[in-house]
Design a protein around this nucleic acid. Structure first.
Length: 849
DNA sequence: GTAGGGTTAG
């Protein structure tokens, strides 16, 4: 065909050229080569009779998405336009080519060209320019065009509404809808649609209701598109009542109308209404549910946590053959995960899905992560990288990071952070991902990294601030958390209910009733005090701040109590060591049958029972666990083992430990090791650490606390020393205060004080501003007293005074050291400085004295 | 041209 045309222009001229060009293009010949053709192109230009056809060719090329070729031809023609007339009708297509190719400059120069040629009086030219400017987001240019038009007509105004709306400029779309009415024109159907869409997107309920009335008054309600868009608009504003009204007043409803309503109910968590709507739709009879119908229903099941209905919908989607749609498959994976059935989610993912998208992988990773199956989430992420060609995105990382922090693996967090940087994700731009990173570092105790990343986040939202405050709270720096909270109040971000929850936790951590009362008032003033979790946290806060009365009053007055509320009370009593009240509230809970105890309840009961003097407590709690069917949970068994061990019944603990089988976890090993330690069986504790390693478990910080404690209490100095070094060298764990206390105590008792001092210095135990350095040096100072070693003691005292000048406690330690070395004068002097400071000048630091 | 899968803090 191409050869034929090129060689025989004369023949071409006799046929309908437009048609031939069209055919030529669809035969996949290169249009630019056609234009370059030495034979055809010049010969076409020579003949004015071809003008129409060339104009058509520009248009056809643009419409066939051959934008470059279209522009190329235009440029050729415009350079020789003395002998050639351009048809203004061709410009809209040409400008659309500019927009599609992102050539704003060519578009602007074309605009200039159009002004020069006097084409601006043409309606279609103006509309083409508007479309182009709006696509580029050049709203100013679009407004100017509107202003400059001598006569503003209906078509032009309607175009503006649609173009702005189509490109997401909803405010402008609504403005020009009003312009249409103000100029006395009539809006087109499409304009009404975009105006309704804009109201929904902007959540403008008042304007939406006005538009609804406008639609009814002007007969637009006869169009199903308008009815559907009104339903959608009300759903976006969470006004399901209005959406139902709009739905009921529709004369003709199609599948979209029904689906919109079903999905609307599902998104609002109203599973029952979603399903009822679905049944009503089936009663109507002539509509066949499609994948969107099922998407809505599946969403509802997930939100409601209704596994049975979810399975039924899953079955229906298999029968109807709709499961082949990978988006529906993903929604089903997500539904199963939300119903805590990760097994089903995995089966659908592996066997039921023909195609897996990035979203499918993300869904399952999120499912595992949110259900606490951290290892599986981490594994799936690894599989995704190795097995699929997909590149993880910010959602993938935001899902896998909580799993890594659940695994307490700072290494995995660091390596995925590095991967994010490599992919170009981590720049503090994506606020959800950045928040997840802050949270992950914070949970793995790297407060400094969390803080650094937090400061890089461009636009932190309430969740981001909450995460940062929570990091300080979790890591026991409530004062720093308070400072960040105050910073948040200075920022533009408003605190939400979660902020108040964390604020109350900070007060609980501080143990300050004064601060707690203030936080209580703040919560009341902001209207969060009726929030269920806020109330629970407040009960906990008052318990921690020592005001049992306030906690009990809040508990009594709570209109709706949950298991968590009861558990908060119980664990509060445990914290203050009130076994009797724990038991009393537990029996009260049992008598009110609407609340069934869970494993958390049992743990409080076991802890309280373990502290009862009679010694029978653990056995009684054990029988409760069996009776309530909660003795198959690792958490419960671990607590029982702990209680038995603390009551000297190490054999009962051992028997539970031996029978745990698959249930046995890291914590079980740690509890058992500590249990041996409490019972003075240090050798067995050391043996268990070896067994633990042989069974594939990696000793963690708590394991070493337990084993060091065991060694310390059994006088196993060499073993203790060995484990301390194993922790440092083999497992690369930074020792905490608890480890230091043990090792200093142990070496101190063995008279090896210099060695302890060397260890503290070599490990730079005082280097980290956020570490417990002062307490470590304090422990060394105290050990010096025991050894009557003035030299090490004074060194420790000096360091301590520099590290923590505000902390006057070390004066006592130093004074005790001097006293034990019979240096009464020094002892009295130091003691006096302390007393002076405490009574007369409490606010002045030691340096100033 | 309308309805439509996954995302953080407690």
């Amino acid at each position: 065909m191409r050869q034929f045309l090129c060689s025989s222009p004369r023949i071409a001229s006799h046929c309908g050229l437009h048609l031939i060009f069209h055919r030529l293009l669809s035969s996949a010949a290169s249009p630019s080569s056609l234009c370059r053709s030495p034979l055809l192109f010049p010969s076409l230009l020579e003949k004015r009779s071809f003008t129409f056809s060339l104009n058509s060719l520009i248009e056809v090329l643009a419409q066939c998405h051959k934008f470059l070729q279209s522009l190329f031809l235009f440029r050729k023609i415009s350079t020789i336009r003395t002998s050639f007339e351009l048809d203004p009708l061709v410009f809209p297509s040409l400008l659309s080519s500019c927009a599609c190719l992102c050539h704003l400059n060519i578009g602007k120069s074309t605009h200039g060209f159009l002004i020069k040629c006097g084409f601006m009086t043409w309606d279609s030219v103006n509309i083409g320019l508007i479309e182009m400017y709006v696509k580029f987001g050049e709203r100013g240019d679009a407004y100017q065009l509107f202003e400059e038009m001598p006569i503003k007509n209906e078509r032009f105004c309607n175009s503006l509404v649609c173009d702005f709306g189509f490109n997401g400029f909803f405010e402008e779309s609504l403005v020009f809808f009003d312009v249409i009415l103000a100029l006395g024109f009539f809006p087109y159907l499409k304009s009404v649609y975009f105006a309704v869409l804009a109201c929904g997107e902007l959540r403008r309920l008042d304007k939406g209701i006005w538009l609804y009335n406008f639609v009814i008054r002007n007969g637009f309600d006869a169009h199903v598109l308008i009815g559907n868009s009104l339903i959608s608009m009300y759903i976006k504003m969470d006004r399901l009542d209005f959406a139902c009204c709009a739905f009921n007043s529709m004369k003709d409803k199609d599948i979209v109308s029904w689906n919109s309503l079903i999905t609307g109910f599902a998104q609002n968590g109203n599973w029952a209404e979603a399903f009822k709507t679905f049944l009503s739709m089936k009663e109507v009879g002539n509509l066949i549910p499609n994948r969107v119908t099922f998407l809505g229903l599946v969403l509802a099941c997930g939100r409601a946590g209704d596994l049975d209905q979810g399975k039924s919908i899953h079955g229906h989607s298999i029968v109807t053959g709709l499961l082949s749609d990978f988006r529906l498959g993903t929604a089903i994976v997500d539904m199963y995960a939300k119903c805590n059935s990760t097994q089903c989610a995995q089966t659908v993912f592996q066997e039921g899905m023909f195609k897996k998208s990035l979203v499918s992988w993300n869904s399952l990773i999120s499912g595992y992560s949110q259900n606490g199956h951290y290892w599986e989430a981490a594994q799936l992420f690894k599989n995704m990288i190795t097995e699929s060609n997909l590149k993880p995105d910010s959602v993938t990382f935001a899902n896998v990071l909580p799993a890594y922090s659940g695994l307490e693996s700072i290494e995995l967090i660091k390596s995925s952070h590095a991967l994010m940087v490599k992919i170009g994700l981590e720049k503090g731009k994506d606020v959800v991902l950045s928040t997840a990173v802050v949270d992950a570092y914070g949970k793995c105790l790297d407060v400094a990294a969390a803080k650094l990343l937090f400061t890089c986040i461009e636009k932190p939202n309430a969740a981001t601030w909450n995460a940062m405050i929570a990091v300080y709270c979790l890591n026991h720096y409530p004062e720093l958390g308070m400072l960040v909270f105050l910073e948040m109040l200075q920022s533009k971000v408003s605190p939400d209910a979660v902020t108040v929850i964390i604020l109350l936790q900070l007060c609980g951590e501080l143990g300050s009733l004064k601060q707690g009362n203030m936080a209580h008032c703040y919560s009341l003033s902001k209207g969060f005090s009726s929030h269920h979790t806020v109330q629970n946290t407040m009960i906990d806060m008052y318990m921690r701040c020592g005001s049992v009365e306030n906690s009990e009053n809040l508990f009594r007055l709570m209109p709706v109590k949950s298991v968590i509320t009861w558990n908060t009370m119980l664990s509060g009593y445990v914290k203050i060591g009130s076994c009797f009240r724990t038991m009393k509230v537990f029996s009260q809970m049992l008598s009110e049958s609407e609340y069934s105890p869970d494993s958390v309840t049992l743990i409080s009961l076991i802890q309280a029972a373990g502290a009862v003097v009679s010694g029978h407590g653990p056995s009684i709690a054990h029988s409760f666990a069996v009776k309530l069917g909660l003795d198959a949970e690792a958490l419960v068994i671990n607590s029982l083992m702990d209680a038995y061990a603390k009551n000297g019944m190490i054999e009962n603990a051992r028997s539970l430990f031996m029978h745990m089988g698959q249930m046995r976890d890291q914590c079980s090993w740690n509890v058992m090791i500590a249990g041996y330690g409490i019972n003075g069986q240090g050798v067995k504790a050391c043996e268990l650490v070896k067994q633990m390693e042989e069974n594939g478990y990696k000793p963690d910080s708590i394991t070493f606390t337990s084993v060091l404690f065991s060694c310390c209490h059994s006088g196993l100095i060499e073993e203790g020393h060995e484990y301390f070094h194993m922790m440092l060298d083999k497992y690369n764990i930074k020792p905490g205060l608890q480890h230091w206390t043990c090792i200093i105590d142990m070496l101190g008792h063995a008279g090896r004080l210099e060695e302890a001092h060397r260890l503290v210095v070599s490990q730079n135990a005082g280097g980290d501003a956020l570490s417990d350095s002062d307490a470590i040096w304090g422990a060394l100072l105290d050990a010096s007293r025991m050894n009557m070693n003035l030299e090490v003691g004074e060194l420790a005292g000096n360091t301590l005074s520099k590290l923590a000048p505000e902390n006057c406690g070390y004066h006592i330690l130093l004074s005790n050291l001097y006293a034990s070395c019979y240096r009464w004068d020094e002892a009295t002097k130091v003691r006096r400085v302390f007393e002076d400071r405490l009574t007369k000048k409490p606010g002045i630091s030691l340096v100033q004295i």
